[in-house]
Amino acid sequence: MRSSGARRRLPAVAVPCPEEAFDSWLWRAAYRIGVAPGFFARALGLDLSGVRQVRPVGFGVCLSLEAAERLEACTGIPAGRFTGMQLANVAVVGAPVGKLTVSRLREWQADQWVSVYGGRVCPLCVADVPVSRLWWRLSAAAVCPVHRCLLVDECAGCGRRVQSGRAQLGMLPVREGALDPGVCGNVLAGSAMGRCEARLSDLPVTVVGDILVVWQRPLLEAFAGRPVRALGDEVSPRQWFAGVRLVTELVREAATAAELEDLGMPSSGRGPGAWLCSVAGEVRGRVGSPPASALEAAFVLRTAGSLLTGHDPQDAAGRLRSWADRLVRSGAAKTVLAPNRRDVPRLVAAAVGW
């Protein structure tokens, strides 16, 4: 982003909420003063392109120090607050390397298990304040720890991923006027400017209780930048998340139904976590793909996450070794294991024979 010259301090700007994503704040702050998000972005001095819409490729992913300082000058909000709202600065995520293009950004978000544009949502949270939390953009995010409900993936109004088409590929509307951050806002198919008006707070909620909150706790610890244990060893957030991605591939491709049941996965529609039964078969064969739903994320947290963090380290290492051996014998090791070597914790790497 290039400098757009000296900027005046705006008289009133919405203050970012804790854990809020950058695009969520910009959309919300623009609505508060009655202007389009793209128009507001230009007023803040962000160097963007386009007339009717602006299309910054890395919007919400990374922010230069120069741009953050311009935002501080315009809003009075510290520059560090804005840089901390970018996906590339999340502790579990590896920053993209080189110049960002649309294709490279798509590859990066799939590799890092994040969703750049849109994400999951807790309808009960946004009923209070229409804020999209940054950790909801993690593909492994599954549950709201406050309301004990599954995060919602799909809008009941348009049938698409929640807010995924609101700013597709970072395109920020300039001429539409103020856009309510409390609605889905996806651009409707076959309509030049029509948007989904379904209110996020009205989306159906599935209450799952405390068990999934416990399974997700290590993910939120890692998101907050705190070290997490993997096979008994304290590791960095990024290493732990890399370990989860690798173990997920092993579970998907090598673990038997009996082994999953032995790990605590329900085998019938009864008891705690019974709602997970429907997803166990759906994750097979999705090598390299991040969890496509909150339900799949719950499966990942219950299997890979708990195996690394809450299981007996020696037993867990033995299971990983057995699954890795199966993949080697089947000839699938190169496809499943090789792409997941980066940042993996040393004990996890040793368990799979690296």
Rank of each mutant, 00 (worst) to 15 (best):
Met171Trp: 09
Ala230Val: 02
Val208Ile: 13
Arg161Ile: 05
Val162Ala: 01
Cys196Gly: 05
Cys144Leu: 05
Ala192Asp: 15
Ala167Gln: 14
Val205Leu: 03
Arg160Trp: 14
Met171Tyr: 11
Glu234Met: 11
Ser139Val: 12
Leu212Ile: 03
Val183Ala: 09
Gly185Cys: 01
Leu212Gly: 01
Ser191His: 09
Arg226His: 13
Gly165Asn: 10
Ala178Met: 05
Pro218Lys: 02
Pro173Cys: 06
Pro204Ile: 08
Gly232His: 10
Ala167Pro: 03
Phe223Glu: 12
Gly182Arg: 02
Leu179Glu: 10
Cys144Ile: 00
Pro218Trp: 02
Gly165Trp: 15
Ser236Phe: 06
Gly185Glu: 03
Glu234Cys: 10
Cys184Arg: 00
Glu221Tyr: 05
Asp210Lys: 12
Arg161Lys: 11
Trp215Thr: 03
Cys196Lys: 01
Gly194Glu: 14
Pro181Ala: 13
Gly182Met: 09
Val235Leu: 04
Gly170Gln: 06
Thr206Ser: 15
Arg229Leu: 11
Leu220Ala: 05
Cys184Gln: 00
Cys155Asp: 06
Leu179Phe: 06
Arg160Phe: 11
Ala141Pro: 01
Phe223Cys: 14
Ala222Arg: 00
Gly225Pro: 07
Ala230His: 05
Gly194Phe: 11
Leu179Gln: 13
Asn186Trp: 04
Asn186Asp: 07
Ala222Gln: 04
Val183Arg: 06
Leu200Arg: 01
Glu154Trp: 13
Leu200Met: 03
Leu200Gly: 02
Arg148Lys: 14
Leu188Phe: 07
Val214Gly: 11
Pro227Tyr: 06
Arg199Trp: 08
Arg148Thr: 10
Asp210Glu: 14
Val214Ala: 15
Val228Thr: 11
Asn186Ile: 07
Ala222Lys: 02
Ser164Tyr: 07
Leu150Glu: 00
Ala178Lys: 07
Asp210His: 12
Gly232Thr: 08
Trp215Arg: 10
Leu150Arg: 11
Asp210Arg: 11
Val235Asp: 06
Glu176Gln: 09
Asp153Arg: 01
Gly185Ile: 00
Ala224Ile: 03
Ala192Pro: 08
Gly209Gln: 14
Val235Cys: 03
Ile211Leu: 11
Asp180Thr: 02
Arg199Leu: 11
Arg226Val: 07
Gly165Met: 02
Ser236Gln: 08
Ser201Phe: 10
Cys155Gln: 08
Ala141Phe: 02
Leu212Glu: 08
Val235Asn: 01
